[in-house]
Design a protein around this nucleic acid. Sequence first.
DNA 1: AAAGCGGGGCC
DNA 2: GGCCCAGCTTT
Length: 363
Amino acid sequence: MTETSINSLNIPAFQQDLLRWYDENKRDLPWREDQDPYKVWVSEIMLQQTKVDTVIPYFQRFIEKFPTVYELAEADQQEVLKAWEGLGYYSRARNLQNAVREVVSNYGGKVPDDPKELGSLKGVGPYTKGAILSIAYDQPEPAVDGNVMRVFSRVLRIEEDIARQKTKKLFEDHLREIIPHEDPSSFNQAIMDLGASICTPTSPACLFCPVQEHCQAFAAGVEEQLPVKKKAKKQKKIRYVVLLAKNSSGQYAIEKRPEEGLLGNLWQFPMIPIEEVGEDHTGNWFYDEYGIALRISGKKGELNHVFSHLIWDMEIFDAEVLTDDSDNGRLEFTDPDKLQSYPFPVSHQKIRTYITDDPGNNK
DNA sequence: AAAGCGGGGCC
DNA sequence: GGCCCAGCTTT
């Protein structure tokens, strides 16, 4: 049924037009300096749901710190999370390190070039598998991401919802026909570059497009209507009380988040949903929750933080720790100038500046 | 199939 | 405010 659109594509001409354009216009990116499968892997994980400009500095620092699978395998997870701090989707970092450790222990340190082995690694899904196999190992494997679906939903005028799994499979099937066996690495990267610079989500630059004459959406004037994607539902709001709890030595209480789930194994200032404590500002609830007595003093400010699936509305208070048995319990007490050494999510990095930028705390 | 999982930039 | 971005995992 979709054979109509694929059959009307002149595949050899499309490949040639695209690759010629790529040869002259490819972006100079740090992970393109060689074909090191480890670096390709790291870059692909970082690039999941993340823009190239955001990734570049993270990638450079990360490779400097962990140049090969061995350094990453041996590193402390907190060190890895610190290198990932601010990049988001932190399970990517945890999964990447787990997978790299498996590569070292089970594959002699060589990133697998077998689709089954590669795809079985933590955090390596269909897209990343195809990207590594094609870019690092020159295998003609499709690597279907949002870019590829946008470009080919237009070229082939495919109007199915790209949020559906079936649609993604449809693109993979098409790509297996279209991808050249000659230089699949350049082909897949060319699609990425085309999607990033020409075939953009809004206002695509069709007049400069090297494959304009192959594009069925352009021919019909519907390129702005594609791809079709179901709308996301809006975020849930959660209100929190956050405490800047200082003990008599001038140290602040922080806690490590649970290993799994949102912001797993990152650190934060103690934080409780207001729903659980009501409008009680005495601090008694804190003793019930953390086993430490404190007195809540002034309100420091409010902060909203937007995630893709929820919103935190945070109220931040100063607090004075009254008990001195700081050793047990969930909390750790840290000097203000040591706070920078822990991986914090961006929301709590902002809260951290309440302390580090406050002249009263510099000592 | 749907939900959970970050953060930034653009409109 | 909504949408998008070189997606994967779990339910």
